[in-house]
Amino acid sequence: MSELLQGTLDMLILQTLRWGPAHGYSIAQAIRAGSRDVFRVETGSLYPALHRLEKRRLVRAEWRTSANKQRAKYYRLTPAGRRHLTREQSRWRQLVHAVRALMRPRGQEG
């Protein structure tokens, strides 16, 4: 499954960054592993999303040398990004509840 709802990818990226700064590749891997291989984030979506978040000041980027001596651009959550993530999470929970309620077979309510 590669199509994601608009905005969901942003949330997933922010969620990943909650554990600390990461570069694009590790974010993609983390999402893929975390979703048990369901979400494969394409580079063509990942990087525009990252840059969009950077432009909106939700993440900050800086060039660093990775553990295996590679130069990479690391992204880090900003306080604004953290607040945004919290909002998005509660929104997402509402959405999931609503969808679950709709999708539950009849007669099983309550």
Partner: peptide, 17 residues
């Protein structure tokens, strides 16, 4: 150039992985 470099590093890491 920066975007180029970023994509390049992504690719490198994927190969190395």
């Amino acid at each position: 150039e920066e975007i180029d470099e970023e994509l390049e590093s992504h690719l490198r890491m994927a190969i190395q992985d």
